[in-house]
Structures are given as C-alpha cells and as structure tokens.
C-alpha cells in the first residue's frame, strides 16, 4: 500500500499549526475539518512535528 499521512480525528483540535509549516499547500482547514491533499503532499513530515497533539500519523 502507498504511504500517506492520516489525521487522527480523535486527537486533532483544528488548530492550524500544521498548515503554517507545510511548504506544499497540501493541507487546509475547512471549517472544522483538516483536509490533506494527498496529491500535493511530499511526505516531508514537517506537520507531524508541528502538531501539538501528534494527531498526524503515517500510514504505511
């Protein structure tokens, strides 16, 4: 299966920290939902380290 990042919805607080560090326009908060645009995501993992709740997980 292809690697991609997933949001653990039980953890995510919709805070926007991950968006500020994404250089690839691969994430966006739409109202109360964080969306990842897989086709833009380079798996650089910046967002994983920026997330206060460690809500972003790598799916292998």
């Amino acid at each position: 299966m292809e690697r991609k990042i997933n949001i653990n919805r039980y953890k995510c607080a919709c805070c926007g920290a991950c968006i500020a560090v994404c250089n690839f326009n691969a994430n966006e908060i739409i109202n109360t939902f964080l969306e990842i645009k897989d086709k833009n995501c380079t798996l650089c993992f910046s967002c994983i380290k920026a997330c206060p709740f460690r809500a972003i997980e790598l799916e292998e």
Binding site: G16, A17, I19, A20, V21, N23, E28, K49, A50
Partner: peptide, 21 residues
C-alpha cells in the same frame, strides 16, 4: 492568521520552518 495562504498565493513566502513555530 497562522494558517495564512494569502501571502503564498500572492508570491510572498510565509511558510514557517520548524524552528519558527
């Protein structure tokens, strides 16, 4: 705000490094 896109859309790079957040 923190999740700003306008800067990047308008050709100013406002993305933060991990040591800036």
């Amino acid at each position: 705000g923190i999740e700003s896109k306008i800067g990047n859309w308008a050709g100013m790079n406002t993305t933060l490094n991990l040591n800036e957040l």
